[in-house]
Nucleic acid binder design. Structure first.
Lengths: 223, 223
DNA sequence: TGTACATCAGTGAACGCGCGTTCACTGATGTAC
DNA sequence: TGTACATCAGTGAACGCGCGTTCACTGATGTAC
């Protein structure tokens, strides 16, 4: 072999990483194979040594983006379990920094509507990752039962992703900032004070106004 | 002139109407000029007698879709002013019927993320229509002040659109239905029972579980 | 340890295709007389 | 009222371009001896 087995795996991973950024920035059909390969330091002809088709890369790249979000959220909830972790997630999600850097942000807000129009493979992958994300949020959500926590998680995810899509569509000006701050305040209020049912855990109230992952623009998942 | 002035206006409007459906179904770049014209009963060459570019049509077509939503919402709130009207809007929005028929549904959920990546003209139009939609909802929203009502409207819009995007991305199965029903229940609870501040108007409670616009699949706005 | 060979990640030209746009043309009808 | 002409919405072939994919080839390196 011209290159070692690890070399190929590294190249493959590099293409997937770069693609996950460019696809989130430009949309599902916004980047071509040639540019994707160039970004990874290669020429377009070598693409098919790594992927069966552009669609196969799309699936891997979007899955990668969502895995990064999931890992990021897990890290946050490990540092601050329960409602405080949820609050940290929401707080970092609904920021101008996240809005203005979709390439390193949430794939649901960037690509969700488009993925819903893609082939069965992409849709299945996306649905499975969505379930994972709901599970991560539900594990920290308030609620007397597992069902109540899951409901809380789903509603919070819908509110977060909807607000981010609106904020991006609103253009980045005052209206856009308003959307972010209003929804952030409301989601945090829901999350920390929610007296829906008799809570199993005591309600923690840490770090409501900070934006932990959005401070410095290091190239990491913000979602 | 070969055709009367009204004839041209009718043809123009027909292209815009058909385009607004196909674009919502397939995405901002999912339909070509040739197919769009064929759908309107014409050949592609005549396109530029009506529009300066494909982009110009995109802007008109998405604006049309959002105007239909706005008109539809106004009609509902005229029939049931206040919280009851808001409840009717949310109720019809978060249905499998709306989820499964994006071509006649809400342009925010179908195209919002993509429009955010388009040119300045499309983004400006979209932001302006978003403001209109917020205003329509805010006029019926509960709240001691205009600001509180506007906040309520923005949060409700984010929750609605986010849930619809998630439900479509989740694939249409049990998980997808779960998203719709959970968020619908929660949004309706927020809307009708919300004891946020001393309400100016008495809270009406009509037709909570019905889906007025989604009963028969006549080709009308569902959003 | 040194040599010969097979492997295969990566190259770059070429492919068929569909896209948005242009353009010379058509012919029914509004308008001028 | 009737006739001649100008208009211009709509036609369909053609354009340049970028796309995803294919393919013959390269050459550094892992492997067999």
């Amino acid at each position: 072999m011209r290159y070692s087995r690890e070399h190929k795996a590294e190249t493959h991973a590099r293409i997937v990483r770069k693609a996950s950024v460019l696809l989130r920035e430009r949309g599902v059909h916004g980047v071509g194979v040639a540019e994707l390969m160039k970004e990874a330091g290669l020429t377009h002809g070598g693409f098919y040594a790594h992927f069966a088709s552009r669609d196969a890369l799309l699936i891997e790249a979007v899955a990668h983006a969502m895995d990064r979000s999931i890992a990021h959220w897990r890290k946050i909830t490990q540092a601050h379990p329960g409602q405080a972790g949820l609050a940290d997630i929401v707080d970092a999600y609904l920021t101008p920094t996240h809005r203005d850097d979709p390439g390193y942000g949430c794939a649901i807000a960037a690509l969700g509507a488009e993925i819903a129009r893609e082939g069965a493979g992409a849709r299945r992958m996306f649905a499975a990752k969505l379930e994972e994300m709901v599970a991560v949020l539900a594990a920290e959500a308030d609620g007397a039962t597992a069902e109540a926590a899951r409901n809380e998680a789903i509603a919070t995810l819908a509110l977060m992703t909807g607000a981010l899509v609106l904020a991006r569509a609103a253009g980045g000006g005052a209206f856009s900032n308003e959307i972010l701050s209003i929804v952030r305040a409301r989601a945090l209020a829901d999350t920390t004070a929610a007296p829906k049912t008799a809570a199993g855990k005591p309600v923690a109230k840490k770090r409501l106004a900070s934006t932990p992952a959005a401070k410095k623009p290091r190239r990491k998942a913000k979602s």
